[in-house]
């Protein structure tokens, strides 16, 4: 994966395959500990302890294929920055994937185009799945929640191109993490 926004898309797509109706993506930048934490919560069908125990094995998958690379790739990315991945899940209880990354670590990929990730999720599944995207940084909290947008839009589909454009523009202009560069990186 080229950047963290592609990992976010991958994990969120897993949640959709797990029949989630709500996915919460929360990024927290902790300047004091030089950490970026990514938390993805879903209310999908969850996993039993046997599945959970094998989820980091790239040759384990619940699908009719031979590999399951999403979580191993995310764990590799986190660990190469001094971070880690933790997963909590239980059948019927949904799943929480938490990944931490060293913010200033030289091997941390850029956050990337998170606007395209969120818009892709809404365009593909926004009618049936609510998406929350939230950034908590030193400069404050920014969040966009399609459940709130749907209430205001009433009968207009959340997947309407005008809505998707507005969401993309808001994410690009109001949400700052996408454009932040660690202080130790020369511009």
């Amino acid at each position: 994966m080229e950047d963290l926004s592609l990992h976010i898309l991958d994990i969120a797509e897993n949640a959709i395959r797990a029949e989630a109706t709500r996915i919460e993506i929360i990024l927290t930048k902790d300047d004091g500990h030089d950490l970026l934490t990514l938390e993805i919560r879903d209310n999908g069908k969850g996993m039993d302890s046997e599945t959970l125990a094998r989820i980091r094995d790239p040759f384990f998958t619940t699908k009719q294929k031979k590999t399951g690379l999403g979580i191993p790739l995310l764990a590799q990315t986190a660990e190469q920055t001094g971070g880690r991945v933790e997963i909590e899940s239980a059948p019927g209880k949904g799943t929480v994937v938490t990944a931490t990354f060293g913010w200033c670590h030289v091997d941390r990929p850029q956050l990337g185009d998170v606007a395209s990730t969120v818009v892709t999720l809404i365009a593909g599944h926004g009618a049936d799945v609510d998406i929350l995207y939230e950034e908590q940084t030193g400069s404050g909290l920014h969040r966009i929640d399609t459940a709130d947008l749907k209430r205001e839009l009433e009968s207009v589909p959340i997947t309407d191109p005008a809505v998707l454009d507005a969401v993309r523009e808001t994410l690009k202009t109001e949400f700052t993490l996408m454009n932040e560069v660690p202080s130790n990186v020369m511009r």
Binding site: I144, L149, E152, V163, A166, V167, E169, T170, T173, E174
Partner: peptide, 9 residues
């Protein structure tokens, strides 16, 4: 657009 507002929606 600076911010997605209720007016925009």
């Amino acid at each position: 657009m600076a911010k997605l507002t209720i007016a925009d929606l």
